[in-house]
Design a binder for these strands. Structure first.
Lengths: 226, 226
DNA sequence: GCAGATTATGTCAGCTGCTGACATTCGGCA
DNA sequence: TGCCGAATGTCAGCAGCTGACATAATCTGC
């Protein structure tokens, strides 16, 4: 279970491996950059942290920073990106008997839960991912970048769903529509979470997600008033 | 009907009115900036157009540009912003008997149709709004900004839905969830439209939107395979 | 272990988006 | 006409980001 948890590229565990010194060093600096950026962001805010600060905190030139990350947003979203990749992994391994919607719902729940168990603190941990989410929500450009990432992820979900059900997404709109709906419900849950600072921790988030999914049917139903 | 169509702030028609010379001039420059920006963007692309170019095309200092628009994205999205506001207007005037989902669906269709009829060409016209959408899709930062705008719009939709049905969105998740779903389906339709350069013109877009909405039920249904 | 090919990094110079501060000009109004 | 406030221009400057080139580190085959 936790064995399936994502291995964030560049965590110390990867170092014992084969990939050669050069590769190891790269992952080290990448990891260090994410970590430094993360700490700076949380302590002084995203906007008030300059790329120069991050770079010099890791003792690296600004130019090098931009060789690892296309822009300042990217380093902030790196942690979440890994979680998203893991979610896709989960989705790919869902049993074929499940309905598409069930598979999606089960996948995020599993993803959050596994990440919650990995719980190795430091960047990459859930708690920091959750902190990140709060940060994203009140840094306009960051939010924008995040939303863009999410829509890219949605494309992948469309692909996976289409393969899973053996159909062509250009003929059948269901994968596209379902992926979109799924994404939007998730985002709504995330928003709720950051707004009312609800029961915290991964389990709190999972509960919120479930509650939102439960409202999918009722929300689409005909009249609301009793 | 077309009487309800939005009056883009700053169109020439507004000029004959009372508001005083100062105000008129402001709206003129604003309009001129949008127009110039729009033409430049479409001819050379968003990224390759500098704010200086836009400003000097209207014979105005760069600083002044930034007093009208908070950033380069905003001037590009100005046209769409007006369309979105008009959609909200439509939603507010929907009969109370309609189900929430019906009201939303009817509102975009009406909005697109009215805008299609207004058809005054130039920035603010549908055709240019449609061109804009293509542009947005392949300018990363623009897309990001647009998505952020959309989510803000969603908040308003939540509010309107909640008022309409007389409930508190913090207790009842249905408005939030429905607004999210609605937004995502719309966005999926937009994406389809830019991807396959489908039947063009507003009517083509409306048809696409309808097709996507029709798949909402099927997409959420249990198993897909027949 | 040693050349030579690769590849990461540093340095520098420069553009562009965006902002604050202050001066100037222009429209509104008595 | 003359004063007040709003809109604009000018200037200086920061921060994000990029291309070009030089340097230093790793990797490869011998």
């Amino acid at each position: 279970m936790a064995a399936h948890a994502p291995r964030p590229t560049g965590t110390p565990e990867d170092l014992g491996r084969t990939p050669g010194l050069r590769e190891r060093k790269k992952q080290q600096t990448r990891y260090a950059l994410v970590q430094a950026a993360h700490m700076l962001f949380l302590s002084q805010g995203f906007a008030r942290t300059t790329v120069d600060e991050i770079a010099s905190a890791v003792d690296v030139s600004q130019r090098t920073f931009f060789r690892y990350f296309a822009n300042k947003d990217e380093v902030a979203l790196a942690v979440m990106a890994e979680a998203e990749d893991y979610f896709i992994e989960c989705l790919r391994h869902r049993p074929a008997e499940e309905s598409p919607l069930e598979a999606l719902r089960a996948s995020i729940v599993k993803a959050w839960r596994d990440l919650g168990n990995a719980e190795a603190s430091g960047p990459g941990s859930i708690t920091s991912a959750l902190e990140l989410m709060r940060m994203i929500e009140d840094a306009p450009t960051l939010l924008a970048a995040h939303l863009r990432r999410v829509t890219e992820q949605e494309r992948i979900v469309v692909q996976v769903l289409a393969e899973r059900e053996g159909l062509d997404p250009r003929e059948d709109l269901r994968p596209t529509v379902l992926a979109a709906v799924f994404g939007s419900v998730l985002r709504a849950a995330h928003l709720s979470w950051t707004a009312d600072r609800e029961p915290d921790g991964p389990e709190g988030m999972i509960a919120l997600i479930e509650r939102h999914f439960d409202q999918l049917g009722p929300a689409l139903a005909g009249r609301w008033r009793t």
